[in-house]
Amino acid sequence: MKELLIIAIGSALVNNVVLSQFLGICPFLGVSKKVDTAAGMGGAVVFVITIASLVTSLIYKFILMPLGFEYLQTIVFILIIAALVQFVEMFLKKAMPPLYNALGVYLPLITTNCAVLGVALTNVQKEYSILQGIINGIGTSVGFLIAIVIMAGIREKIEYNDISESFQGTPIVLVTATLMAIAFCGFSGLI
């Protein structure tokens, strides 16, 4: 139990997926203008990463490992993730329209989000069990949700600031990310 908690806190705060591992930078910069959309994107990422880390660890443990096909992991994982995202989208559209309306538009954007593949590969690299893999997935994606929602909150405020011409848009967002990354460095003593 204690070990799982350490994995969760480690992946959510200490090694934050965006601010210290630089995975999923594109949606972090692109979809963080408003808190609502950022929360929607974050929710969709939590949903997809949790399912993807479950499915990829199952396939790795029960198909690739027994057959000695570990070297195919990159190819298999990326195809599984791409198929899975589309499948989840179709399933939600049919079965849970309210959830689809909240997350649907963000789902296709996640296919090539490197955070999803990154979690699947980290699970293999660190030799996590299936449960540990899922916890790592949830922790990582919650870390993404925290980072993108904080960023959107700050961006809503700095909208009204007087920023010099060259720094408008992406540069000021990156400076904000710098300060957030410094703050998140403070978590490194946590575990």
Partner: peptide, 22 residues
């Protein structure tokens, strides 16, 4: 050489690019 430095260097790079572009 820590993660925040990466964001900072990129911020200045994009600002420079904006300047050149305008």
């Amino acid at each position: 050489i820590l993660p925040p430095g990466a964001f900072l260097v990129l911020a200045f790079l994009v600002a420079l690019q904006n300047k050149v572009r305008s």
